[in-house]
C-alpha cells in the first residue's frame, strides 16, 4: 500500500515537472502557433539565472541569508528569460508568424546560438547550484516520507497554473491575448494593438520557461545543453493536451507523468518510455487534435 501511494505521488510529481516545462510552451506554441525550438534554451537561461543569483548571494551576503537566494531567483529567471524571449520575438519570430516550418528552423538556430553563448560565458562543464536548506530532506505525510523539494515544486506549479488561468481568463490583457490568438483580424479591427500583444505573449511564455529552469536546478543538471533534455517532453505534453488549450496541457502533463511512473515501475525506465509513446500514439489516433480541442469557425 505504501509503495503504491509513494508511486502515485511520484507520478504526480513527475506530472508537475512536465507541466512546468510545458507551461511556457503552451503559450508560445499552444496559443501563438510558433514551433519554438528554443524553448529548451529559455529554460536553460532560467537555470543559469538561478546560478548567477546564487553566486551573488554567496559573494555579497552573509551565510545565513543564503537559502533565500531561491526566492529571488524565481522572479529574476522569469524576467531574464522573458527579456530573451522578447528579443527573440522582436528579431526573428515576428517575421515568421503563420509560417510554422520556418519558425521551427529559425528558433532551432537561435537555440544553438544561446547554447554556445552559455558555453562561452559559463564554460562547457555543468555548474553546481546548491539547493536552499529549507528544501532539503524529507517531509513525513501520514506514513510517507516525501522529498521536500518535490512537494515545493508541486505547490509552485499549482500556483503558476492558477496564475495563468486567472491571467488569461479574468484579466483584460489576458483576454486581449486570447482574442488576438483566436481571431487576429477581428481583434485588430476592434482596436487591439496586435503587434504589442504578440510580443508580450511571447515574453510571458519565455518567462515561464525561465521559472521552470530555476526549479529544475533543484533536481537536475545545469549546463549549456540542459534544454535539449526537456524539449521533446515539453512538445509532447502540449501536443497531447491539445494545442491552444491550457486545461489540456494540465491534463496531459499529469496523465503522462502518472502513466510514465506506472509503466516504469512495472517494467523499467527504457521500456516505460517506449510504452508511454505507444500510449501517446494511440491517444492521438483517437483524438488527432489532442485531448482538448478548441472549436472555432475560423479557417486556419
Amino acid at each position: 500500500m505504501e509503495a503504491i501511494l509513494l508511486q502515485l505521488f511520484n507520478g504526480l510529481s513527475l506530472g508537475s515537472i512536465l507541466l512546468l516545462i510545458a507551461l511556457g510552451l503552451a503559450i508560445t506554441f499552444g496559443l501563438m502557433n510558433v514551433i519554438n525550438m528554443a524553448h529548451g534554451e529559455l529554460i536553460m537561461i532560467g537555470a543559469y539565472a538561478a546560478y548567477v543569483v546564487q553566486l551573488l548571494f554567496l559573494t555579497y551576503l552573509p551565510e545565513g541569508m543564503f537559502s533565500w537566494y531561491f526566492i529571488f531567483a524565481l522572479p529574476a529567471s522569469f524576467l531574464l528569460a522573458a527579456f530573451f524571449g522578447w528579443l527573440l520575438e522582436l528579431s526573428v519570430i515576428r517575421h515568421l508568424y503563420g509560417r510554422p516550418l520556418d519558425s521551427l528552423l529559425a528558433t532551432f538556430g537561435a537555440g544553438l546560438i544561446l547554447q554556445q553563448l552559455a558555453r562561452t560565458i559559463f564554460g562547457a562543464p555543468n555548474v553546481g547550484v546548491q539547493s536552499p536548506t529549507f528544501l532539503a530532506g524529507t517531509i513525513e505525510i501520514f506514513t510517507l516520507s516525501i522529498p521536500a523539494s518535490r512537494l515545493f515544486i508541486l505547490l509552485l506549479v499549482a500556483a503558476c497554473v492558477g496564475f495563468m488561468f486567472y491571467y488569461f481568463y479574468k484579466t483584460k490583457s489576458g483576454m486581449r491575448i486570447r482574442a488576438v490568438m483566436q481571431n487576429r483580424k477581428m481583434a485588430s479591427s476592434l482596436g487591439i494593438n496586435t503587434r504589442r500583444v504578440d510580443s508580450t505573449t511571447f515574453a510571458i511564455g519565455a518567462g515561464f520557461a525561465g521559472v521552470a529552469g530555476t526549479v529544475l536546478t533543484l533536481i537536475g543538471p545545469i549546463g549549456p545543453t540542459l534544454g535539449t533534455a526537456y524539449i521533446v517532453d515539453a512538445f509532447m505534453v502540449v501536443v497531447v493536451g491539445g494545442v491552444g488549450m491550457l486545461i489540456g496541457t494540465v491534463a496531459s502533463a499529469l496523465g503522462i507523468g502518472m502513466f510514465n511512473t506506472i509503466f516504469e515501475y512495472v517494467t523499467n525506465a527504457s521500456m516505460g518510455r517506449v510504452l508511454v509513446f505507444i500510449l501517446i500514439i494511440l491517444v492521438l489516433q483517437w483524438r488527432p487534435n489532442g485531448l482538448f480541442h478548441l472549436r472555432t469557425r475560423s479557417l486556419d
Binding site: 537536475g220 535539449t228 510514465n260 515501475y265 523499467n268
Partner: peptide, 20 residues
C-alpha cells in the same frame, strides 16, 4: 539491475526500487 536512457532526469521510481 536497472538501466535508464541517457539524459534520463527523473529517478524517483528508481529510488523507490532502491528503498524496496
Amino acid at each position: 539491475e536497472q538501466y535508464t536512457p541517457l539524459d534520463h532526469t527523473d529517478y524517483n521510481t528508481i529510488i523507490a526500487r532502491i528503498r524496496e
